[in-house]
């Protein structure tokens, strides 16, 4: 005679939830604390102009040159003879230009960094992939 419980017996296994809840709450606190600490940052990549000259290899395509200057206390963008007071105007003109030769951005020593970043951003937004920064000596 088999008095043991039959096949219908239930085996329940308890999942230990205590530590899971602990850690989930720790993660929650962590994210809440760090959320306001970090400002969302990005960056604008460009090449730095090198002093080395190409050995007799003249470029077929001349790059566009954007100059960032400070005129009457206001940052302006100069492209050839044209002067732009806003990043949007600069971008609109750059979009129409050929992109193959790339673009040089030259920031004058007095121009604010924000304007230099604005010029780099306008070049990127206009579709230039070869963007070179030329520091003023």
């Amino acid at each position: 005679m088999n008095l043991a419980r039959g096949r219908g017996a239930r085996h329940t296994y308890d999942l230990p939830l205590t530590s899971l809840i602990d850690v989930v709450f720790l993660l929650l606190v962590y994210f809440l604390l760090t959320l306001s600490l970090n400002q969302r940052e990005s960056d604008l990549a460009s090449a730095l102009q090198q002093d080395k000259q190409g050995a007799g290899k003249a470029a077929d395509l001349t790059p566009q040159i954007v100059r960032v200057e400070l005129v009457d206390g206001k940052a302006v963008y100069r492209l050839g003879e044209r002067v732009f007071g806003s990043q949007r105007d600069l971008r609109a003109v750059l979009e129409a230009l050929p992109k193959e030769g790339g673009v040089f951005v030259r920031g004058s020593n007095l121009a604010p960094v924000s304007a230099v970043a604005g010029a780099l951003q306008a070049c990127k937004d206009a579709g230039f992939t070869k963007v070179t920064y030329v520091p003023t000596k």
Binding site: E41, S46, L48, Q49, Q50
Partner: peptide
């Protein structure tokens, strides 16, 4: 700084921005 980096041969640089 860019001139010094350029003199050292560094070409890749990025200007940090905030959204």
């Amino acid at each position: 700084l860019a001139l010094r980096l350029s003199a050292l041969g560094v070409r890749g640089w990025r200007l940090g921005t905030s959204a």
